[in-house]
């Protein structure tokens, strides 16, 4: 809807109505998050009592960081956060290189069998991860790994089992492919005439002008990886390699301490929210650009 003429016609009431509706909706989207953070500051008894009234959203009563201290005592949270940060960072960075390189090859270079391979890659979109999780478990369980302890068979209980299967993303390849394909061909042709090698064209010409699509791919992958749940649940039993979402299990033993649960949820969510709020324009444009070309 074009807002300009509408606004001039209904001016005050229209604007007031819009802001009221927008604010009600804002409350709907934000209240669980406010509840989480506020509750993480309250002792268990008060927390459970407060949910019966609007006090649930107010940081009042016996407010402290005790739940955070208790949560750190209960579980090796530092290890979980380190694991998640490591897995996420490595997957995002290496993934960007592998996927963008493949997309460049598909979009710019000419080679035999390219179209067949590309259509297979795009067709794999349709396979959801949950549908292949079990056979994948059998595969990683029989793959060799050369680690500090020598040659081992099976990747279970490690960080690399959480990284390597997720490096490639058909979606990411497609995202890069669309972007590279629409770049002006003169750029590539000019570089070819200047005698640049095919690989140089990739990292000297294409990569420097593709910042936005790299940001998009990185942000989407970051969210996926930070929030990994089912796969680490299946392949990591040892606490040394556990990521943050699976670490939650520590707080669900007998007599759940809800204050600690809230503290933990806040700990794993607030950093992502801060990152989102400081880069929100990039986050939102990144999602928006995925849709434009459909």
């Amino acid at each position: 809807m074009s807002a300009q003429p509408v606004r001039t016609r209904h001016h005050n009431w229209y604007v007031l109505g819009s802001y009221t509706l927008l604010s009600i909706l804002a409350f709907v989207f934000v209240f669980p998050i406010v509840f989480m953070v506020v509750s993480s500051l309250k002792p268990d008894l008060q927390l459970l009592r407060d949910t019966a009234s609007l006090n649930a959203f107010l940081p009042i009563g016996d407010i402290s960081l005790n739940n955070y201290a208790a949560a750190f005592d209960r579980a090796p949270i530092g290890t979980f956060i380190f694991n998640s940060v490591f897995v996420t960072t490595v997957t995002v960075l290496i993934g960007l290189v592998i996927n963008s390189m493949a997309a460049y090859s598909f979009a710019v270079l000419r080679w035999r069998g390219k179209n067949t391979v590309l259509s297979i890659v795009i067709a794999t979109f349709i396979i959801p991860f949950e549908a292949i999780a079990i056979p994948l478990l059998l595969i990683v369980n029989s793959l060799p790994w050369l680690g500090p302890e020598g040659l081992q068979i099976g990747w279970l209980n490690s960080l690399h089992v959480q990284i390597i299967p997720f490096l490639v993303s058909a979606f990411q390849i497609f995202l890069f492919y669309q972007f590279f394909r629409d770049l002006p061909t003169e750029l590539v042709e000019a570089a070819r005439i200047d005698g640049a090698s095919l690989f140089q064209i990739y990292y000297r010409v294409i990569v420097p002008i593709s910042g936005p699509v790299f940001a998009t791919a990185a942000i989407l992958r970051f969210l996926d990886m930070w929030n990994q749940y089912l796969w680490p649940l299946m392949v990591v039993q040892s606490e040394r390699y556990r990521p943050v979402m699976v670490g939650l299990q520590y707080f669900f033993q007998l007599n759940i301490a809800w204050g600690e649960v809230m503290a933990y949820l806040s700990l794993v969510t607030i950093p992502v929210l801060i990152l989102y709020l400081s880069l929100q324009r990039a986050f939102i444009t990144s999602i928006a650009t995925t849709g434009i070309k459909g």
């Binding site: 390189m101 493949a102 035999r112 390219k114 391979v117 890659v121 490639v168 058909a170 095919l198």
Partner: peptide, 19 residues
């Protein structure tokens, strides 16, 4: 032809093994 294959290879191999 060769460079094209080589640059697509890491993605294609990983996609084949893990998907």
């Amino acid at each position: 032809n060769i460079v094209g294959w080589l640059m697509a290879a890491p993605a294609v191999v990983l996609l084949t093994v893990f998907l």
